[in-house]
């Protein structure tokens, strides 16, 4: 990937992110933040590549921590987002409260 192509990708991705989120209702702010938090868990693939190319003990140690943190970001981000969005299936239906 040449520098200018990378720059194009950067610009287009930035516009995409902006367009995708605009006009989102307030009730989705928290789940959406959590969802985008999950998406940057893609750092996992970078951490895997970094650890996969590590040679010295120091590089391996840092790489290991990196993969561990990234896996936490991806898995944790998915679980909490899924749990939050789970609530939205209740929308529109009458209460399923304690004596409903």
């Amino acid at each position: 990937m040449t520098g200018i192509v990378a720059l194009y990708i950067f610009m287009l991705a930035a516009f995409t992110g902006y367009e995708v989120i605009s006009r989102v209702p307030v009730i989705l702010h928290t789940p959406l933040m959590s969802g985008s938090n999950f998406v940057h868990g893609i750092v996992l693939v970078g951490a895997m590549v970094a650890l996969g190319a590590a040679h010295t003990p120091l590089e391996k140690a840092i790489g290991f921590v990196g993969v561990l943190l990234a896996a936490g970001n991806a898995v944790g981000g998915y679980v909490v987002t899924e749990r939050m969005l789970e609530m939205f299936k209740a929308s529109g239906r009458a209460g399923r409260g304690s004596h409903g």
Partner: peptide
């Protein structure tokens, strides 16, 4: 940060996902 490290590793998935979150997160 993920987007920038994606440039370093030449990793398109990280560049795109990181940048999308960067701009969407800023708007949010």
């Amino acid at each position: 940060a993920v987007g920038f490290e994606g440039f370093v590793l030449n990793n398109a998935a990280m560049i795109i996902a990181g940048t999308v979150v960067g701009s969407a997160g800023t708007l949010l």
